[in-house]
Amino acid sequence: MPELVLQLTRAGFLALLWLFVLAALRVVRSDIYAASGLRVAVPGGFRKGGKQLAKGKTAKQLVVTHGALTGTRISLDGRPILIGRADDSTLVLDDDFASTRHARLSLRGSDWYVEDLGSTNGTYLDRAKVTAPLRVPLGAPIRIGKTVIELRT
């Protein structure tokens, strides 16, 4: 090996050492969201929902599965769904545990996202509290007070 190549390989080796450290740190970073052991509960439908979405199946309707409004269906046309006790909400809840403007479901790309609008008692996607917009897989229960809704095709 000529001297120049040797020197370059030497520098390259040091660069690779640090590249390994950086690659390892990337793995660490991807874990940060699952913060110190407080793992998001794993709904069975989560991964399945993702696969269904990948096949191009988008949610067509929203169904109330528990609570005073059980059985209510709202068909989804791409416009955001407002949920709360306010009269102008898309889904008006008569639930003591719900806030006036409680949560919003909105379509981004082909996925629906649920977002808490600063409610008093919180919105739960399956059993995890919604703090940032979360993608809603098909069939995953969203709990608002005593009301549970889910997306169906």
């Binding site: 991807s30 969201y33 699952a34 998001v40 981004r108 940032a132 917009p133 993608r135």
Partner: peptide
């Protein structure tokens, strides 16, 4: 890529809650 950065981590490989 258009999705907000707050939401992309849910779909990033390795961080899906499906462990």
């Amino acid at each position: 890529g258009v999705l907000g950065s707050a939401t992309t981590h849910m779909t990033a490989p390795g961080s899906t809650p499906a462990t």
